[in-house]
Design a protein around this nucleic acid. Structure first.
Ligand SMILES: [Mn+2]
Ligand SMILES: [Mn+2]
Ligand SMILES: [Mn+2]
Ligand SMILES: [Mn+2]
Lengths: 234, 234
DNA sequence: TAGATGAGTTAGACACAGCTAAATCCGGTC
DNA sequence: GACCGGATTTAGCTGTGTCTAACTCATCTA
């Protein structure tokens, strides 16, 4: 309590990156421990340990030695603010500047710390207040409210089912490029033609094309299942 | 020479700000001494002195103790690159986002350090490769070439002369707001109706309106003189 | 249940970029 | 030509965020 008197001083770039990473880890239900965060951010566990202590000191996380951190209410507010920036910037880069979606995370990761609020709002207006980043993840509103990440993995669909891609795993640029080149992006409709139980491959109908995907991709595509899941031959 | 082996590592935010400031000082023919730079950047002379030493070490400036710095060729290249970013971002903020021109310097000053080259190029394309920042200062090309700052102060015009505003002093946000509110922006044509020798005020004809300006503004507006400088009554 | 093992923390160091206070220099003034 | 005052530099310190190396803890195994 004593610490949070010097309020409203902006968080350092490093703090913002740590908080956002903790947020993303928590969002998928994992626990944010030292090693996890360290490897995501490309720093040593020692550095992460030191930062956990600082963040705890400042009331942004709850920190129990040897067992990781969780965001406090204040930390969550700060984190969602950065995530919001990150995702809006990604949208800007793809939609307005035409940059490939596998590169925008890296760029947004730098820009997110330097964007004044007014500029972010201007960009949002320009974009028409988008709901998600280009990869389909929800953009938190200014008060921190955020929709649930939508969709279930294609892996969970059985032969004959229809779905629309709502979101894709955005953690690997190679994978993202691969998906883009095949048109596997949010908004695309598909049908699972066949699921091969032996080797885990699936055959998808995407528009006119048919393509076979493996487990990796079946787990990276999150779809909204459509009602017309009729038996395949008809 | 020995130092510049570890090339291409990006310059720190601080170094970029110092270099850009030295560049701007040199561009108006002044010499970049410790006090000047310190007061522009809002740091102490001691800090500036330390930075001068670092920049000299790295081959970015020539530094003679007690007599200031000048940019080396390499330093000038780096500086013009930052100035370029700064001015392109300013254009983006005014032209695309509609932010008032008296606020964009502050924003651009943060954003200029975090903008990847590809993003800057995308923004330039979007803007149609502008020649100047919103205040009329030339944008250096990617190879560092830069046009001369155009125009002569309104102060140098005599009664009856016509001019078009090409550039305005951008160092004071208050002044910029004042100018904007009166339509005194690049591209605006004006005529000097009268120059009062006693108190230094001038009467300008701007479109339909007539307005009286003092010395401060007469020195802040840089115009291109137009040929039709006919005597006033006839 | 006593180690072994691997994850996590601490200790000590470094680079950066800022500060204050105390020298020091340099360009005039007398 | 000595001296004075303001500008500049130096000395010493701080805070941030990183690292490596050495440690300590928690847990799982034998
Ligand atoms: Mn970041
Ligand atoms: Mn994304
Ligand atoms: Mn800057
Ligand atoms: Mn400008």
């Amino acid at each position: 309590m004593v610490d949070s008197l010097a309020k409203n001083s902006p968080l350092s770039t490093s703090r913002e990156d740590y908080l956002a990473d903790i947020y993303r880890i928590q969002a998928v239900g994992q626990s944010a421990n030292t090693g996890e965060v360290a490897s995501h951010l490309g720093v040593t566990p020692a550095s992460t340990s030191a930062m956990f202590k600082r963040l705890a000191q400042e009331g942004l996380v709850n920190y129990k030695s040897y067992s990781g951190v969780s965001l406090t209410e204040e930390g969550e507010r700060a984190a969602s603010h950065i995530i919001r920036r990150h995702r809006v910037i990604e949208r800007f880069l793809t939609d307005i500047l035409g940059i490939d979606w596998e590169r925008v995370d890296e760029f947004a990761n730098r820009m997110e710390h330097a964007m004044p609020d007014e500029v972010l709002e201007g960009i949002e207006r320009l974009l028409g207040d988008p709901d998600t980043c280009p990869h389909g993840y929800p953009i938190p509103s200014e008060d921190g409210a955020i929709a649930l990440a939508s969709g279930q993995p294609v892996e969970s669909l059985v032969a004959g089912e229809f779905g629309v891609i709502r979101r894709v795993d955005e953690s690997d640029a190679q994978l993202l490029r691969h998906l883009r080149e095949r048109g596997l992006v949010p908004g695309t409709a598909l049908r699972v033609v066949d699921a091969n139980a032996i080797d885990g491959t699936r055959t998808l109908q995407v528009g006119e094309a048919t393509l076979v995907i493996g487990q990796r991709i079946a787990r990276a595509l999150f779809v909204e299942r459509l009602a017309g899941s009729d038996r395949q031959g008809a």
